[in-house]
């Protein structure tokens, strides 16, 4: 195995590991908001690592397309988590026992007065 292979192998395997960790967290965690954290974030990181690992093995001009896919993922992931988090909060998918402080509900209650 050449140096290039080693780099690619490290990136690919660590990326896949992050994907598994995200999926494991999604099964294990108690409520939608925390699952959202486990699902989108390690998943993004995992995909970026895998794309990097692939780019190392392909010819250089393909790397641009892979960078585009990674860029889209980085741009879309936070938007998705924000929309989904808001939907989860509004539809009551939050396990209150996991929250130490909830300043949003305090504010909402104060606003309703």
């Amino acid at each position: 195995m050449s140096v290039r292979d080693w780099i690619s192998a490290g990136l690919l395997v660590s990326g896949a590991l992050f994907c598994v960790i995200g999926a494991w967290g999604m099964v294990r965690l108690p409520d939608t908001l925390s699952r959202l954290q486990a699902a989108t974030k390690p998943q993004t990181l995992g995909l970026l690592l895998i794309l990097a690992g692939t780019a190392v093995r392909l010819e250089p001009h393909y790397a641009a397309g892979l960078a585009l896919a990674g860029l889209f993922q980085v741009i879309t992931a936070p938007v998705l988590s924000q929309l989904m988090g808001r939907a989860a909060y509004r539809t009551g998918c939050v396990d209150r026992s996991t929250l130490v402080v909830d300043e949003l509900s305090q504010r909402l209650r104060a606003g309703r007065q």
Binding site: C19, M26, Q43, L47, R57, Y62, L80, M84
Partner: peptide
């Protein structure tokens, strides 16, 4: 919402799998 989230994650996994497939065949 949990199901939608899981489906979204599955799509990302499929993308990742396709990328690994490309790395395997060394063709983009």
């Amino acid at each position: 919402l949990d199901r939608i989230l899981a489906v979204d994650v599955l799509v990302v996994l499929i993308v990742a799998g396709t990328a690994v497939g490309m790395a395997m065949s060394s063709r983009g």
